[in-house]
Write a protein that binds this DNA or RNA. Structure first.
Lengths: 192, 192
DNA sequence: CCTACCGATCGGTAGG
DNA sequence: CCTACCGATCGGTAGG
């Protein structure tokens, strides 16, 4: 009988979805296992049966997010303009799912502390994002499609930083910020 | 005898400085009055004699920051390129004082929640920053000193968002991010 | 998965 | 400004 396994997997997913929502609202340190558990329809002791510590729950949330993003970004694909367009498509998807942006912005700010359990995750995350953007900007430069004076490394760093900064401002005052439009304009301005 | 008043003012400043440090490390919700008080050399009940609630302390911290920033940015000055240079000078000052960047990044991310006590502060803060940048980019555009196709409103939004996004990435991986240099390059690229 | 519990910590108050 | 206290909440464990 694999019924027990299936039920367990579904329960796990329910808990992770609840955790994403709560982390987005309250951050990691500001959230409680009891609140996550309540939204998943169990007690906090029940949650700890599936994820043995608060940190293990966070790790599982980040791992699931990585898998989803990697699929969406097609990070295996060869570098080029379409990779940068995939970043913008990801931003477009995020705008339609504010909870994800909440989660990411809150955790990124918390995790600047070196002893935060998500610190290493974000160090890696930024490096991967920058490297992916860099390879694509580099390829565009080699093809002479980058505007004169635009250095690929700086363009990559700026592109990623811009995405993050726009997200926080968009969450704070959604009506004043055109997240996706701004990214498109930036990319257009950097191309020849 | 004004001695009592002076001592009180000094004590207040000590508490605010301690709060800036703790907020930077733990955010607002993640910090405790006991930790702030300990660093200021009093008990948490003593702190509440000066600031009656946790929220009142946060408000006082933000007010002091506003005053210091307004001085540094010379926000009363007429718009123009030198205002944008003042923003970069502020970033330069911040890089030399990481605690301030910590505080700001953590609070900004927390305060996207509409019921956060600093939410209105950040709504106002972003509006002021965007408006100041916009007036300056607009003036540059009127003088024909903006590169063709660069729209002042978008340039202002992007400029502020870039500052914020770079700060979080710089805090996470200081060696990989040239905060001030990136801002300079962005500004140069937008000018004719 | 739950009930019941633990030690620790929180913001705030009373009363000096 | 402090001591002493309050009710609430936290992550985690025992034992089933």
């Amino acid at each position: 009988m694999t019924g027990g396994y299936l039920k367990g997997r579904i329960r796990r997913e329910d808990i992770l979805s609840a955790a994403v929502a709560v982390y987005g609202e309250a951050g990691y340190h500001g959230s409680s296992l009891r609140e996550v558990a309540k939204r998943a329809g169990i007690t906090h002791a029940g949650l700890l049966y599936y994820f043995p510590t608060k940190e293990a729950l966070l790790t599982a949330v980040l791992e699931r997010r990585d898998i989803e993003d990697a699929e969406r970004l097609q990070l295996g694909a060869p570098p080029g303009l379409h990779v940068l367009r995939h970043f913008i498509a990801l931003a477009e998807h995020n705008v339609a799912h504010p909870g994800i942006v909440d989660l990411y912005s809150r955790l990124a700010a918390e995790a600047v502390a070196p002893d935060h359990p998500a610190h290493d995750y974000f160090v890696r995350h930024y490096q991967l994002a920058r490297d992916a953007a860099l390879a694509s900007f580099q390829m565009l430069a080699d093809e002479g499609r980058l505007r004169a004076g635009v250095e690929p490394g700086m363009a990559a760093l700026t592109f990623i930083a811009l995405m993050d900064g726009l997200q926080v401002q968009w969450l704070t005052t959604p009506d004043d910020v055109d997240l996706v439009g701004s990214l498109r304009v930036y990319l257009d301005n950097v191309l020849a």
